[in-house]
């Protein structure tokens, strides 16, 4: 390769052009991913309040582990971590199950199938503020659902589904399932339709029951897509903030880690602890994803081949 500035051969010029083009995505990646992450890591090793953000304090080289000690020493940290795990695992499983169920229901041809499929997408596309507000009203102990249940005589006392442990977490998980199953449904349905008919015909010839067809033909074909969806949903739920905050604000045992981050940052103006909690969240997620890849993704990929 020649020195920059010299024209060189056509090949050299093209190479230089290629690097130039590459500069655009690299800059973007740097600005929106690498820089914020590194900056957050940097902030998490400082003791900073909101006020310090406007001074040169964030740039100082006085590193401290204060923020991490604060996060790990927090009386709510362990319960917060458990809540996050419960919420993520429960939410992911229920989303997948509901998505799989609806996809199976809506894959045979019948009249109005298109309209049904469209209807099923509503929870996913409706604005989150509107749906959480509506659900809060519906689930209020004196709202329509509880009033009806008490009037019918199924309940003696109304339940506070969003205000009491462990009901609040269960409700959050169910809400997660309701709101995000359409995504799983779309993915699974696309995969279902790509399964060759011949496999089912062969199964029919062997005299397989519908259950056998599902467990030995359909499910193996869906493994990779289910594993991928599980991965995505788990990641997104682990970092989920808006649903939780809007439904329970973190009360009644639903203070998940992202809510803790906001508590530090906005509630206590402790920027360092907020950054450290975010890094802890990031770290937990990374570890969990590595395990997931090792245990599930790899196996699912092998099955597919």
């Amino acid at each position: 390769m020649r020195i920059w500035g010299e024209r060189g051969t056509l090949q050299d010029q093209e190479q230089r052009l290629a690097y130039l083009f590459l500069l655009v995505p690299v800059t973007i990646v740097f600005l929106v991913i690498i820089f914020p992450t590194v900056w957050n890591l940097w902030l998490s090793f400082h003791k900073l309040s909101l006020r310090d953000l406007r001074t040169s304090a964030p740039l100082s080289l006085n590193f401290t582990t204060y923020s991490y000690l604060k996060v790990f020493g927090d009386l709510d940290f362990t319960s917060s971590l458990i809540a996050t795990l419960t919420y993520s695992i429960g939410g992911t499983l229920i989303t997948l199950l509901l998505g799989l169920g609806t996809a199976l229901l809506l894959s045979p041809k019948f009249r109005g199938r298109g309209a049904m499929r469209g209807l099923f997408l509503i929870p996913y596309i409706a604005p989150v503020v509107a749906v959480t507000f509506t659900w809060r009203l519906l689930l209020d102990p004196r709202g329509p659902i509880m009033t009806a249940l008490v009037n019918v005589g199924w309940l003696k006392q109304p339940l506070h589904l969003l205000g009491q442990r462990p009901l609040a977490m269960t409700t959050l998980i169910l809400f997660q399932g309701w709101r995000y199953f359409p995504l799983a449904f779309l993915f699974i349905m696309a995969r279902l339709q790509a399964i060759p008919r011949t496999l089912y015909e062969a199964a029919d010839v062997d005299g397989a029951t519908p259950f056998q067809k599902f467990f030995y033909v359909t499910l193996p074909q869906l493994k990779l897509i289910l594993a991928t969806l599980g991965l995505l949903r788990f990641m997104w739920t682990f970092n989920r903030f808006d649903d939780v905050y809007l439904l329970t604000s973190g009360a009644a045992g639903t203070k998940v880690l992202p809510v803790l981050v906001v508590d530090y940052l906005i509630g206590q103006f402790d920027v360092g602890a907020g950054a450290a909690a975010a890094m802890v969240l990031f770290g937990c997620l990374t570890v969990l994803l590595i395990i997931y890849f090792r245990l599930i993704m790899r196996r699912a990929e092998q099955m597919e081949v």
Partner: peptide, 10 residues
């Protein structure tokens, strides 16, 4: 007080 999450609205 009635059961539930009672706030100013109730």
């Amino acid at each position: 007080t009635p059961r539930g999450n009672i706030y100013w609205m109730h």
